[in-house]
Nucleic acid binder design. Sequence first.
DNA 1: AAGCGCATACCGACCAGTCGGTCTCGGCGG
DNA 2: CCGCCGAGACCGACTGGTCGGTATGCGCTT
Lengths: 223, 223
Amino acid sequence: MTQRLAGDASAYASIPDRLLAVATRLFAEKGYESTSVQEIVAAAGVTKGAMYHYFGAKDDLLYEIYHRLLGLQTRRLREFAGGTGPVEERLRAAAVDVLSTSFRYLDEFTVFFRSMHMLPKERRRAVRAERRRYHEQFRALVEEGQREGVFRADVPADLSVHYFFGAVHQVSTWYRQDGPLDAQQISEYYVDLFLNGLRARPEGPAAAAPGRPAGDDGGAASA
Amino acid sequence: MTQRLAGDASAYASIPDRLLAVATRLFAEKGYESTSVQEIVAAAGVTKGAMYHYFGAKDDLLYEIYHRLLGLQTRRLREFAGGTGPVEERLRAAAVDVLSTSFRYLDEFTVFFRSMHMLPKERRRAVRAERRRYHEQFRALVEEGQREGVFRADVPADLSVHYFFGAVHQVSTWYRQDGPLDAQQISEYYVDLFLNGLRARPEGPAAAAPGRPAGDDGGAASA
DNA sequence: AAGCGCATACCGACCAGTCGGTCTCGGCGG
DNA sequence: CCGCCGAGACCGACTGGTCGGTATGCGCTT
């Protein structure tokens, strides 16, 4: 629960960890491209030589940030999804966890969605694949609930997941520490909105909806 | 309805429009920072001198893209919100329009959420202010519905709007033209999920929700 | 003495922005 | 109606500086 992604930036952490921690902060603050390698190594208290000893290139830092973040998320999700309670409970727990992780690693998420495109093609593909696996893991929960009739099945599970993840991943763009609501509250409100939107309604799905599409296959809309 | 944001890039459009259209495409493709002014002017078929004749700096292009996009959105939203039908209908129409606008101007949105931070501080503040006004306009619709009892009031309207906009603004990261669902379908599903999540439930808000926060003030969580 | 872990000096590429200059065209005096 | 002039539109070579990455060497451990 208290595992860090890149260790802290203190002088006692290992050099790679210090570099990753500092890079994450700087990339989130000023953007990947406007952060020079020189700045990173200066802030980490090491030299350029040291950095290129541990990382082959600047974008390796970026990749490592993504890789660690996705690893953490996938591991956590697996724990929550693998439980034994009712689907809705498990989905709720997983969703809350996704949100609190997003809040705990705000910088990582900021960098993720802002600088993904700076990765070389091959790396980007690897990250996308990891992300898709994560997405599918989460989607499986929704589909389970659909099969059980707990969740509405007239909206493709894939879309519901994109929808929720979209909302979650944008929090890094507007959330401020000193806002009126803390992370915990926001998380629970968000999960509430998500589950409420997903829940099957007694009188049939979604009243007062003029002209909605007919298809209700669970087809993926890419990932 | 068919108004363009920066004209097209054809040789007959004005030079500033051509530059904006080309810049939008390139920024979306390769990112702001890795697109050189040289590339932009080459793709637009003009020279550097011409560009700096019309734009004071590279980031003026960025700002102009945002400014035009936000102007368009605000104008459209005003039309939809100002109607006379029931709130839910107006909100639905507005929400669908937000989505179809997002799909039509995918590149603009991509650039927006990826490169906002490259703007100089002053400009960034201006854009954020414009965006907040837009957000509040949309929020007013939700609040109206809450007062009328159509929408649940136990989730701050501000959060609901952040939630929906978050989901919407992320579509540019996963939507592909050749996916199984077209933009129209996705829009309606999304709006459905949003309104269903927002709708007041007969038996009281959100069943099976262990330990939800008490506060239900409509306070803004920044913007 | 071998080799790992890092330091330092340096390179070539590139890039935003500039600046002196040219071209076109509308207006105006004769 | 002609010819001149000024101004805005545009050109493109150039510059000062930065940046990612590398080559080489040194000290310390084993």
